[in-house]
Design a protein around this nucleic acid. Structure first.
Lengths: 158, 158
DNA sequence: TCCTGTTCTATTGCGTACAATATAACAGAC
DNA sequence: GTCTGTTATATTGTACGCAATAGAACAGGA
């Protein structure tokens, strides 16, 4: 027999894990229509917002590893949505920027947030709106707490 | 310039995405100690709780695809933590069960939930306890809503 | 200039995650 | 018993996600 803390039904983290994948499943048909994966989508979100960015800035903003970002950017470049150019001032740095085609794609994406919201919301939208505001705050707090704990852990190892 | 709904900072889903990976990062050093990944860990959680299960039951309980579960179980079997046997009564069905070694591993795992909780909690633990109760409820509601929407979407396609 | 250490990106290897497909075993109709 | 359709699992191919490593470019000191 299992210890109660190890029961799946008691695990907050399993809920996050399952919810994240269910969310991705909600995005998938919408993003298929744009020819993007979710990781590629948030990369485009960053670029629609900032026009350009280095690989490091993208990794940092999206909390992604270079081992994920590097091939992802190559695929976006292969789709002609972005360009990659090394800076003349520092040949180590790769600057990523939108192509015309990449900029145009934003028009196709603007309906996505509303569509996802309709998957998340049920009946009484007003109450739900307040609830999601609260949820967002709790997620931000939790994320901040996790990052802090992680930093301390990593500091302790040096 | 980007549309406000497409701003990363406004996206609830990006928070889930980032939080899920930060959570996995918190688990990783603990699970490394057991020689498990998170997906393998929740599979073991299921088996510690239920002793046995078919591949389909595991997939359903953990919301995982057979394409994920099948090789995962092979790795757990290679680590001698589980056994896989086809049922004599129905040769299509594979029954998964714990080995003695797999059952023993639970002892090493019982400290993990407390450790993760300490990564999630900050100062005033009492208030945080209530907060996480609320968070859990909201995650359950959201997950339920997403699954329902998904079912309707899939029903609509047939 | 040469050496050393750092920074920035890319690559490799392993383990998910999932769509699509394959395969074997079963169940029922005839 | 054979055919047909269904069920349960496995396999293949693509794309993350991340640790570890590699490699090129830069910065500063002797």
């Amino acid at each position: 027999m299992a210890y109660s803390q190890l029961l799946l039904s008691n695990q907050l983290c399993f809920r996050f894990y399952a919810l994240e994948r269910e969310l991705m499943a909600a995005y998938r048909p919408l993003l298929d229509h744009l020819g993007l994966t979710y990781a590629q989508y948030i990369t485009m979100l960053y670029l629609w917002e900032n026009e350009t960015g280095t690989v490091g800035e993208l990794c940092s903003a999206l909390s992604l590893d270079t081992g994920t970002m590097s091939p992802l950017l190559k695929r976006l470049e292969a789709s002609s949505l972005i360009e990659r150019k090394r800076l003349p001032s520092d040949e180590r740095t790769v600057m990523v920027s939108l192509t015309a085609k990449g900029r145009e794609l934003e028009q196709k994406a603007i309906t996505i947030p509303d569509h996802i919201a309709s998957c998340l919301l049920s009946n009484n939208k007003d109450e739900q709106g307040r609830k999601f505001q609260l949820l967002r705050e709790m997620l931000d707090e939790t994320l901040e707490q996790l990052k802090e704990t992680r930093k301390e852990r990593e500091k302790g190892r040096h």
